[in-house]
Design a protein around this nucleic acid. Sequence first.
DNA 1: CGACACATTGAACAGCATCAACCCAGGTGG
DNA 2: CCACCTGGGTTGATGCTGTTCAATGTGTCG
Lengths: 269, 269
Amino acid sequence: MLKPILLQVLFDKLDRLVDLGEHDKAALSALPQHHKTIPTGGYIVREGTKPDYCAILLQGYAIRQKLSADGKRQILAIQIAGDPLDAQHMFLDCADHTVQALGEARVAIIPRHALQTVVMSRPALTHAFAVNGQVDASIFREWLLNIGRRDARKRLAHLFCEIAVRLEANGQSTTDGFYLPMSQEELGDATSLTSVHVNRSLRILEDEGFIARNGRTIRFPDKAATMKMAGFDPRYLHLGRQSDAVIAESVQNGESSRGAGDRYGRSDA
Amino acid sequence: MLKPILLQVLFDKLDRLVDLGEHDKAALSALPQHHKTIPTGGYIVREGTKPDYCAILLQGYAIRQKLSADGKRQILAIQIAGDPLDAQHMFLDCADHTVQALGEARVAIIPRHALQTVVMSRPALTHAFAVNGQVDASIFREWLLNIGRRDARKRLAHLFCEIAVRLEANGQSTTDGFYLPMSQEELGDATSLTSVHVNRSLRILEDEGFIARNGRTIRFPDKAATMKMAGFDPRYLHLGRQSDAVIAESVQNGESSRGAGDRYGRSDA
DNA sequence: CGACACATTGAACAGCATCAACCCAGGTGG
DNA sequence: CCACCTGGGTTGATGCTGTTCAATGTGTCG
């Protein structure tokens, strides 16, 4: 299998985050790689192992997940085309969660050590992967808020908003809705709900006009309204380019605050 | 204020994760820094801002938190001495969550740009901060599982286990229990429960002999039993030293799996 | 002492889970 | 070509876990 420029979708994503030079892209493209199709449900990373390769999602979707001791599944994140699926293994010795294809997916497989060498030897790439990792962490944080503090209806709506916005940001345009190959049970595992309650909540969202469904394709009749209802604020996705060298401007001075009113700052609007 | 070797607690932590040389520590120590005491509840990072400094927690505790649109708070993480509190701002332009002192805390304040320059110019430091960031992300993932899939009793027990183990790992020994300056409402915000239910669940844990309380000091009469009950498996903390250059050994081959039985791998025991 | 923050307890309630049908579309095999 | 099977989606009835509201207890501090 030759090496097509099919990491393009990764470049698109990284380029959006930082200013990547042609040499950096060339260095990535020059890495040994092969592309592979993973069937629905196929494993890409298994918890407890240390893969010697890194996978980049080229097409389709993948999920991160963990199981509790009594076998209940929690989906931790949904990855879309362009997302590195196990960049974390450049830094961690053991996978702490599992990654599986959602629907049929296409991935690029790159030897971990080779990728690590290139990424760590090129400042722009080091930076790009660091930013990517921090954005992932920010998404985990928002999911904690979503699952911990929003009701079923808002949780689902928020999830849909996130995916729609991330797809758009990557230029995987979704003017007329987007296809999301998740069963209602999987939606439940992503939102900590049962499939039964997902079903009912989806119906309510639909009846209220916040979403429209056609099979597993989701559309927003009024996207702004849905975002508002779900408390979705895209800031946590850090979509813009993250400036590298920044001039300091704010000043730290000893704030101290407690008491009822302003105990903590505001979050999403 | 002179520059004491008081980043020692940070070195202890990073040293545990990667092999840090004396020059690396010296470079960090040489950074301009000042130390500061933050009162209970004082802000260290505010959501929506871009601080020009990075704070390292030297003593005490801090929490990360977000608020939902309707004002409900979710605590995202608990930070202990040695933890960088906003290393993420080396890579992100805008704070997506807030960090506050839990009890009185002591922090080292380092200009962000200076820290960034040193960290990015020294491979061992680059690696150390990358590992640290990935471990933080792993903890967020486990919290998603905790909040999403465990009942109140296990959630609280799991939280206590995590803090105990992390304190121990950093040599902040806790042979006889540990002090955790969180109100029951704060415990509720960390576990997505109400303070009332936290109160009742704590009593149950105590009656069952899984924990012992003395004010805000927690002890485990039988730590192994508590860990087992909570489904706590410390792997997600990635406590050991994360090897830098690793020889590849496992081989990726096209696994495909679906169907009822083995749809996904196991998580915590 | 009085104020205040927090812990504790009780009673009523609600959101979501559980259990159990039933339906529907698509694929398979006789 | 149809009978059957299977994996979802849908719906109803019922109940539990955790919430809400509210009152009372308790330790600390000015």
